[in-house]
Design a protein around this nucleic acid. Sequence first.
DNA 1: CATCTGACCTAAT
DNA 2: GATTAGGCCAGAT
Length: 112
Amino acid sequence: MSEVSLSEKITTTLALVPSGVVVSYGQLADLAGLPGRARYVGQCLKQTNDIVNWHRVLRSNGHIAFPENTLNYRIQCEKLCSEGVDVVNGRVNMKRFGWRPDIYTLLSQLKY
DNA sequence: CATCTGACCTAAT
DNA sequence: GATTAGGCCAGAT
């Protein structure tokens, strides 16, 4: 059986998040089998800049995690908007564009 | 070894 | 809304 690193669990799980859907750091941690470790997700994303779907990760309150005047902030806004996700004041309405049960079920099928 | 820091979260005020 | 306090944990100091 192959050993899967923690960061690998996170990146593979994130890669399954569909376009037009966003997740919080905490949600992603849970789905990757690392409950309560939202902070670790942040560390992983910071490490490498080429993680698939990195832009679909937001804070639990829907806010983009970067300061407003940064380049990354603008890029994330741009990418989300191009996917049909409304970003208002650097913030996404998690109620409308956030997690849906069917998608949750899909990701929950991940086994490591 | 102690403390600080951070792409974080929840609950309570 | 905002703030505080506690939780989380790998790295840096």
